[in-house]
Nucleic acid binder design. Structure first.
Length: 813
RNA sequence: GCCGGGAUGGCGGAAUUGGUAGACGCGCACGACUCAAAAUCGUGUAUCGCAAGGUGUGAGGGUUCGAUUCCCUCUCCCGGCACCA
């Protein structure tokens, strides 16, 4: 017998599969088993990789393990789309460009070329003919076009927005690029800065993003994270009128003649009677306005200093000061509590956030920890208005109402219902080079004008200067030939937008392109979309729960509203995978020296071993972290070698003796059932364990029939595709095993002829008997009783519980 | 602080969803082969006990004939968010 030479076998079959195009997915396939019927399409999506330049174990875990599911479903008769591509725009390419003077395009392309080879070494059933690369103009042309549909639908706008600004790198950073208040690139402290930025109105979809979670087959924790991130709060807005006393600077400020007032947002309107002061955020518009009119506030200077100080704080400083409250009282103005008529002071304090609610709160120190801390520090009154048994008190005619009733009543009388969200609009412009140019032209007379469809794509211009200009403009601003254009509307001189898109836009729709990757007229034709969307299962990392997953759900809904896609949700089912740690149980990192190089392991032990080991390490549908165990990989290799050697035990089916045949057949049918069911539930670990049990059975019987052997190979095929193919051909077959269909099992064979029955007395194990599985209940009970007769002596049996094929339990008095 | 998820041998993990806890693999021990080692194969492996028999799924309590599984209280670990009113 030949030795198991994984290198030779894997190379041979990867080339053969590539040549025969066995994994190219047709848009629809007729089902030969039933006339005129179509095979059911199944779309299995995994998050496409960033072309970092090298595949790590995490990539294998992300792509090679779900491939087992893709292959299983294919054999079960589904037409499975399992595509791959690259999320190819982004910061690392630009960093490499600045650092090493390489062209970001070339850097990215050569990384992708290398990674394609690495990805092929997995032996995955990717359909490479549908590859999608986000930095290619034939893709980003449609990214631009889709953005313009949102722009035209009034879902994109440009606004002065507070952004994370790194003064050292002179660029805006995304929230995810700010780590502990510092720039992830250079470590410099990040500051908040007002800048003119493109935003997308994701907040307009906040309610639907929350509500539609109900109809998704997603794990509850993921849904809950999204709900928390969106942060929907039901409450009330309440107006507090202002009183300036003697001076009456402006008893009426507004043009419409309304009394000057401050509107607060609260989720506890029931505590209105306990509101003993108001707090405004330093950036609250009323504060800004008032500071310009010196006469209004008696301590104008002091307030101005406080506001100024807060604005200079870095993100890091604000985070660190969470406990100690600061603030300034506004002299010369009081607010009137609408419920009590009491005049209460106003404060400016940075514990109130400008971006949430109305940027102003009514402080109820008796029932809010933060208000209490502030009140204690500034000596403000603390008035309890809710009793320990959760009833209102000291609240006039509302006394004795429950909290819920109080909320309702007080909102009706003194305010109005209001819902707010933590979710902010999505800032999508980046002052960077390596991204999709925003397809907008700024015209002095027409404003922001969409680039017409026939001028798309707006190509990313070539340059060799990738540094930002230092004033917050992207490197594109320095390319004059790119910037200067005529306005598409009036024909006058105009300038192109020079920012590029956040890469989360690129990844918000890539899965639609897989359905129709070569289309030059549309981002994806409707009929192609209909064949594949919505996605049946989306597998990916937990880190994307509140970023990519939320952005793409929103994007899809926006497209749905424009009639561009047929579903309001892109992913029917989502699962988050866990992560693979180093052998020391720590996160893999170069500095810790615990990084496992998959290429190296593949060279030594083979792709089939690596795939199977990762599948065997633990259940795939749980967010867990599994340490890479070098001995464990060898164990899986050992299993494959034993399987390889088991070829020698194969005999013609009619030569197998009857007893052996039935023992093997029973176990085989159990294995067919378990492997198929477990694989579909992504419990590859137990599926593999059952194959191991079956191999143990073969070795014990020292023989296996040829038909049984070939059935086993089919079960193995999704897990170890190369070895299964090789053994299949060794067995005399000439077509690919991966075109075979999944074996079926005979339910009659699942039950053993005889089984072990546990015997309990009062629930405690007292023995066991082996008895025919079809024995009548009475016979089982009698046999059991006889077995433990000695123990039952002198006891009165009040009840006997018989669980078929499981146990007999005698309950005594 | 809030939200979510966990806790089972030396390790990764199983357990038909209330019915023999520890499948499968790793590790370890002993044995076979070998001059020897590696590889391979065989046997054993929760724990206390020579045994009969106890005990045991983070801790404590409860429901039940029977609890890893259901209920209550607590401890610890991991992840996310965090002055969100």
């Amino acid at each position: 017998m030949k030795t198991y030479d994984h290198t030779k076998i894997e190379k041979k079959w990867q080339e053969a599969w590539s040549k025969s195009k066995i994994y190219e997915t047709k848009d629809s396939v007729s089902d030969t088993s039933s006339a005129a019927a179509k095979k059911e399409n199944f779309y299995l999506l995994v998050e496409f990789p960033y072309p970092s330049g090298n595949l790590h174990v995490g990539h294998w875990y992300s792509f090679a393990v779900p491939d087992i599911l893709a292959r299983t479903l294919k054999m079960e008769g589904k037409n499975v789309l399992y595509p791959i591509g690259f999320d190819a725009f982004g910061l690392p390419a630009e960093n490499a460009a600045i650092k090493n003077k390489v062209n970001p395009r070339e850097w990215t392309e050569s990384n992708m070329a290398y990674m394609r080879e690495q990805l092929r070494s997995m032996g995955a059933s990717f359909d490479w003919s549908r590859e999608v690369v986000t930095c290619h103009p034939d893709y980003y042309r449609w990214t631009q076009w889709l953005f313009l549909q949102l722009f035209k639908a009034n879902l994109a706008y440009r606004k002065e927005t507070m952004v994370n600004w790194c003064p050292n790198d002179k660029t805006v950073l995304a929230n995810e690029q700010v780590v502990d208040g510092k720039c992830e690139r250079c470590g410099h402290e990040v500051v908040q800065k007002e800048m003119l930025q493109w935003n997308i109105k994701i907040t307009e979809y906040a309610d639907r993003l929350v509500d539609d979670l109900e109809k998704l087959d997603w794990p509850e924790p993921i849904k809950e994270s999204q709900r928390n991130w969106i942060g929907k709060s039901e409450g009330a807005e309440i107006d507090f009128s202002l009183d300036f006393g003697e001076e009456k600077v402006n008893a009426r400020t507004d043009a419409d003649g309304k009394r000057a007032h401050i509107t607060v947002f609260t989720t506890r309107p029931d505590t209105l009677f306990g509101a003993t002061y108001l707090v405004l955020a330093p950036e609250h518009p009323w504060v800004t306005l008032t500071l310009q009119h010196k006469a209004i506030l008696k301590n104008n200077e002091e307030v101005a200093v406080y506001v100024e100080q807060t604005s200079k704080k870095t993100e890091l400083e604000r985070q660190q000061e969470t406990k100690e409250k600061t603030g300034v009282k506004l002299e010369g103005v009081v607010a009137v509590n609408p419920a009590t008529g009491e005049k209460i002071p106003l404060y400016v304090a940075d514990y109130v956030l400008a971006g949430y609610g109305t940027g102003a709160i009514m402080a109820v120190p008796a029932h809010d920890e933060r208000d209490r801390a502030f009140a204690e520090k500034f000596g403000l009154p603390i008035r309890e208005v809710v009793s320990d048994d959760r009833k209102l008190m000291h609240s006039g005619e509302y006394d004795d109402l429950s909290i819920e009733e109080g909320k309702k009543k007080i909102t009706e009388v003194f305010g109005r219902r209001k819902t707010t969200y933590k979710l902010r609009d999505w800032i999508v412009s980046r002052q960077r080079y390596w991204g999709v140019p925003i397809p907008i032209i700024h015209c002095p007379s027409c404003g922001s004008v969409a680039v017409p469809d026939n001028q798309l794509p707006v190509l990313l211009p070539e340059t060799d200067d990738y540094l930002p200009d230092g004033k917050g403009k992207s490197p594109l601003a320095k390319v004059e030939s790119f910037v200067q254009v005529k306005c598409p509307q009036c024909g006058g001189d105009a300038q192109r937008e020079t920012d590029t898109f956040d890469t989360f836009i690129d990844s918000s729709w890539y899965f639609l392109r897989y359905a129709d990757p070569k289309n030059e007229k549309e981002f994806a034709a409707k009929d192609r979309q209909a064949l594949w969307m919505p996605i049946d299962l989306y597998s990916g990392g937990a880190e994307h729960t509140t970023m990519h997953l939320l952005y793409s759900r929103f994007w899809h809904k926006a497209l749905f509203d424009q009639g561009l896609v047929a579903d309001s949700e892109p992913y029917l089912r989502r699962m988050n995978r866990g992560i693979i740690l180093g052998p020391d149980g720590q996160k893999m990192s170069k500095s810790k020296g615990n990084v496992i190089d998959p290429d190296d392991v593949v060279r030594r032990l083979g792709a089939d071993t690596v795939r199977m080991y990762l599948a065997f390490i633990g259940p795939y549908n749980e967010v867990a972290s599994y340490p890479w165990n070098p001995d464990g990989v060898v164990g899986v290799r050992r299993f494959l070698e034993r399987l390889w050697r088991a070829q020698e035990l194969v005999v013609e089916s009619d030569k197998l003796d009857d007893k052996s045949y039935s023992i093997i057949d029973r176990e085989l049918h159990r294995t067919i059932k378990k492997v198929g069911e477990d694989a579909k539930q992504l419990k590859f670990n137990t599926a593999i364990s059952q194959m191991m049990i079956f191999l143990n059975t073969i070795e014990k019987e020292k023989q296996i029939g040829k038909a049984q052997w070939e059935t086993l190979l089919k079960l193995l095929a999704p897990f170890a595709p190369h070895m299964a193919e090789e053994l299949w051909h060794e067995s005399g077959r000439e077509t690919s095993i991966h075109a075979e269909s999944w074996p079926s099992f005979d339910p009659k064979l699942l039950v053993s002829e005889e089984g072990v029955i546990a015997i309990q007395i009062d629930g405690k194990m007292r023995g066991e008997i082996t008895i025919a599985s079809d024995s009548p209940k009475d016979a089982v009970e009698a046999a059991a009783r006889e077995k433990v007769a000695a123990r039952l002596e002198g006891k009165t049996i009040t009840r006997t519980i018989v669980v078929p094929n499981r146990l007999v339990n005698f309950v005594t008095a």
